[in-house]
Simulated assay, not measured.
Amino acid sequence: MQVTRIEGKQISISDSLKANTEIETFIKPYRDHVNQDLDSVISFSKETYSKKDGELNTAIGNLFADAIFEQCNPIFNNMTNNDIDIVLINHGGIRSIISKGNITRRTAFKLMPFENSVVVASLNGHAVNELVSYLSKAKRAHPIHGLKIALDNDYNLIEATINNQPIDTTKTYYVATNDYLYNGGDHMDFFKASDTMYNLNYKIRNVLLDYFKKTDTIQPEIDDRFIKANNIK
């Protein structure tokens, strides 16, 4: 026996399709429980924050990076006796705004719907310089912490520091990122230079949830961590 013909047709899913009452009755208690959990208030936002609010750094991006450092550095330090030097997350990884008013668990799921986890890569100073070069050329507000970059009006590098110190090419730096970027996502190929990776087993969504729970009111700001400036004092 051989298949000689396959036929099919497209069925559009719209409100013209009637719900199955038996299935709806079965699902409803679970849906109600999940919605109640997602709608529980865990923090408050003073303003509405979007990743479109700034050219090279944004308040919401700064919150992302700062929250990762605050939540993950104690874990990494306990694991290795070292501290995280830099946090780098991709601009595209922020998938929603934070609206003014109550922050719920649903907010965190909208911000980070993916299952990405925090990893820490060891990078030598040369690779960190490549990281800085990548950010300078990207001209995009990729969230960073610990690293400060100043560009001129033509986006040429003026200065880059880590914890207010010049980048030392003989030193090893520890860069917290997500597993997607570590594996080459967004063409961040400088992570290929890493000879050691530490998986913190901590999803970024859970980082945000834990940060919001312990922070009564959030009020992040656009600052000077990544700017265009002709003069550095």
Rank of each mutant, 00 (worst) to 15 (best):
M1N: 15
Q2E: 15
Q2S: 14
Q2T: 15
K9G: 15
Q10L: 15
Q10G: 08
I13R: 03
S14A: 02
D15E: 14
A19W: 09
A19C: 08
N20T: 01
E22G: 00
I23G: 02
F26D: 06
P29G: 10
R31H: 14
R31V: 15
D32Y: 04
D32W: 08
N35H: 09
L38T: 06
L38I: 03
V41R: 03
F44S: 11
K51L: 00
K52W: 14
K52C: 13
G54I: 13
L56T: 10
T58Q: 01
N62T: 06
E70C: 12
C72T: 05
C72D: 11
N73T: 09
I75E: 00
N77G: 06
N78A: 14
I84D: 01
I84R: 06
D85V: 02
R95K: 00
R95Y: 06
I98E: 06
S99A: 14
K100T: 01
T104E: 10
R106T: 01
T107I: 12
F109Y: 14
P113H: 00
E115H: 04
E115N: 05
N116T: 10
V120A: 07
L123F: 08
E130K: 13
E130F: 10
L131I: 12
S133C: 11
L135P: 08
L135N: 07
S136K: 04
K137N: 12
A138R: 00
K139N: 14
R140T: 15
P143G: 07
H145S: 13
L147D: 01
K148L: 00
I149L: 05
A150I: 03
A150Y: 11
Y155R: 05
N156K: 10
E159R: 08
T161V: 05
I162N: 02
N163P: 07
P166Q: 00
D168S: 02
T172K: 04
A176W: 03
A176K: 01
L181E: 09
L181W: 10
G184W: 04
D189E: 13
F190M: 11
D195F: 08
T196C: 03
M197V: 15
M197N: 10
N199I: 14
L200S: 07
Y202I: 08
K203S: 11
K203G: 12
I204D: 10
V207D: 05
L208S: 08
L208N: 06
L208Y: 08
D210E: 10
F212K: 03
F212E: 06
K214T: 14
K214C: 09
T217V: 13
K228D: 08
A229R: 01
A229F: 13
N231E: 15
K233P: 14
